Simulated scan of single mutants.
Amino acid sequence: MILRSLLYVPASAERFVSKAHERGADAVILDLEDSVEEGSKDAARAALAVAVPHVAQNGAKAYVRVNVGPRMGDDARAAVAAGAQGLVLPKADSVAAVNALLAELGDADDGTIDILAIIEDAVGLLEARQVAAHPRVLAVSLGAEDFATSTGAEPVPEVLKLPKLMVHYAAKAEGKLSLGMLRSIADFDDGDGLVAAAKEAARFGFDGSSCIHPKVVPVLNEAFSPSEAAVARARQIVAAAEDAAATGTGAFLLDGEFIDLPVLNRAKAVLAKVGEAA
Rank of each mutant, 00 (worst) to 15 (best):
I2A: 03
R4M: 04
L7Y: 11
A13L: 14
E14A: 14
E22T: 12
A25S: 13
A25Q: 08
D26Q: 04
A27V: 11
I29H: 00
I29K: 03
I29E: 00
I29W: 01
L32D: 04
S35F: 09
D42N: 09
A47E: 04
A49D: 04
V52F: 06
P53M: 05
H54R: 05
Q57E: 15
G59I: 12
K61Q: 15
A62G: 08
A62M: 10
V64N: 14
M72V: 13
A78F: 13
A78H: 11
A78N: 12
A81G: 10
A82M: 11
A82N: 08
G83K: 02
A84W: 11
L87N: 02
L89D: 13
L89R: 14
P90W: 05
A92T: 06
D93H: 12
S94A: 01
A97G: 02
A97D: 01
L101D: 09
L102V: 03
A108H: 13
D110C: 06
G111E: 03
I115F: 06
I118N: 13
E120L: 03
V123Y: 12
G124D: 05
L126H: 06
L126M: 04
R129D: 09
G143Q: 01
E145L: 08
D146F: 10
A148E: 00
G152L: 07
P155T: 06
P157Y: 15
E158V: 10
L160T: 12
V167H: 01
H168L: 03
A170Y: 00
A171S: 08
A171G: 03
K176R: 11
K176T: 02
S184Q: 00
A186W: 01
A186L: 06
D189R: 15
A196N: 13
A197T: 04
E200W: 02
A201T: 06
A202V: 07
A202I: 12
A202Q: 09
R203Q: 15
F204C: 13
G205I: 04
F206M: 15
F206I: 11
I212P: 08
V216E: 07
V216F: 05
E222K: 07
A230E: 08
V231T: 10
A232S: 00
R233N: 10
A240K: 00
A245D: 02
A245V: 00
A246Y: 09
D255Y: 06
G256M: 05
G256T: 05
E257I: 05
E257N: 05
F258C: 02
L261D: 11
P262Q: 10
N265Y: 14
A269M: 04
V270K: 00
E276V: 04
A277M: 07
